[in-house]
Design a protein around this nucleic acid. Structure first.
Length: 417
DNA sequence: ATATGTTTATTCTACA
DNA sequence: TGTAGAATAAACATAT
């Protein structure tokens, strides 16, 4: 529903041009009656008129032949019949699988993609978007224009989606880039511009945390993940503009939103792990940069620098803070479910489905712990990062042309005739 | 050299 | 209209 995805001023011209008159959105807002809020309501689009029926949706994601001549990274990683699909709403599973760049069975639960999918459907398949001036457009130019329209998501929400949908809940910068442009053709242009913005967003916003690579997994850049306390940043349903930026409280008082890293002696991991209370007071930023340093650059802690105790095995230990943080954020089985994010599985799956998901998560978690077999929370966290490659679940390594608009291509634009 | 990451500054926009 | 979130540009540093 469009009350869920408010079309704000950003690039409004783009969207109004492609989607028709504002009243379309207004009518979309009426959809609220169908559902609760947030992404749930967006999910309702899966069964909206204009969508194929559930039974049809269960067919095969492959029917959605995506005729994009661009990237198409194949659906190789996809597992159409994966068990992960079974618990999901059929239509959801289908679309999700179709769009998810990370087509592993596990990640096919992709909550974020459900959101995206829903939006996509809403925009294109829902009859209300086919009304008014769109109908009069030349279908060819309209289609082309549409696919290159700027998505109504802020960079922050795009990053959040990408991170949420990834199996390990953390991605490298390049994987983020890839995810975004795979999904949104719009971002296949002007890369320098938006990628700079992405980098800026990652650094600037407290809701994103940097997780250094383990030494045994060399590569460019760190992993990025969501702050466990970032919670539902888009609970107002607007993916262009949060009502309030997520900031770590400590730093809010100290400075205006600047990320600082690696706290002094006070920055105990526990105080920032997001599990003690919904409103812990220690900034995660302290994990990232020294408070004292006026303007430290590039303060990703080196393992040697920060590991108070020898790092078990070959996994690197960026810092205790980080370790706990990331551990809490990504390895605790319950983490995903305390994460009330609109893209989170919470909002998109039934309790039964969540149970299924939960089991899988536990299993994954256990496997990882078994794999790396040591007690340090850090190690597990890092294994998450490296797991992506170990288990072949690496998002960017198996890019698929899972364009956000994918489904659109294979079917006629609803009501546009 | 290029990618990645940090920071500052400016501008635009939505909203109270 | 003021404020705050977001987009953009750019300078600079560091890592690969």
């Amino acid at each position: 529903m469009l009350s869920a995805v408010k079309m704000e001023g950003h690039e409004h011209s783009d969207w109004s041009a492609y989607y028709g008159e504002p009243e379309c959105y207004t009518s979309a807002g009426n959809m609220t009656q169908h559902t609760a809020l947030g992404m749930n309501s967006m999910s309702s689009y899966m069964s909206m008129p204009g969508m194929t029926s559930t039974s049809n949706m269960t067919g095969s994601p492959m029917n959605m032949s995506y005729v994009n001549t661009g990237v198409n990274h194949s659906m190789a990683g996809m597992s159409p019949g994966s068990g992960a699909m079974h618990g999901m709403g059929a239509g959801m599973a289908c679309m999700s699988a179709t769009l998810n760049p990370n087509m592993s069975p596990i990640s096919s639960q992709s909550p974020s993609m459900n959101a995206l999918t829903s939006y996509s459907n809403m925009s294109v398949m829902s009859p209300m978007y086919g009304q008014s001036n769109i109908r009069s457009r030349d279908p060819k130019t309209y289609r082309r224009s549409y696919t290159h329209a700027k998505p109504p998501y802020s960079y922050i929400s795009l990053i959040t989606m990408a991170l949420q949908q990834s199996t390990t809940k953390m991605l490298t910068l390049n994987e983020l880039y890839q995810w975004i442009q795979d999904l949104f053709p719009f971002y296949r242009q002007n890369q320098q511009r938006w990628q700079n913005s992405i980098r800026h967003s990652l650094s600037f916003n407290d809701c994103f945390l940097k997780v250094p690579r383990s030494p045994d997994k060399p590569g460019k850049g760190s992993f990025w993940t969501l702050h466990p306390d970032s919670g539902n940043m888009f609970e107002n349903g607007c993916y262009l503009r949060r009502q309030k930026r997520f900031r770590c409280e400590k730093d809010v008082g100290r400075e205006t939103g600047r990320k600082t890293s690696e706290g002094g002696p006070n920055s105990s991991p526990e105080s920032c792990n997001g599990n003690e209370s919904p409103h812990h007071t220690l900034s995660v930023k302290d994990v990232k940069r020294p408070v004292s340093a006026p303007k430290p650059r590039q303060q990703v802690m080196s393992p040697a620098e920060h590991a108070p105790t020898p790092v078990p095995q070959t996994h690197h230990l960026p810092s205790q803070h980080h370790s706990v943080l990331v551990h809490e954020a990504h390895l605790k089985p319950e983490h995903h479910y305390s994460f009330n994010h609109p893209f989170s599985i919470n909002n998109l799956m039934s309790s039964e489905q969540q149970q299924h998901h939960h089991k899988m998560d536990l299993k994954t978690y256990e496997q990882m712990m078994q794999y790396h077999g040591y007690g340090s929370p850090m190690t597990g966290a890092l294994s998450m990062g490296s797991m992506s490659t170990k288990t072949g679940l690496d998002v960017a390594s198996t890019p698929t042309d899972t364009s956000y608009y994918q489904g659109v291509y294979s079917r006629p634009i609803m009501n546009s005739s």
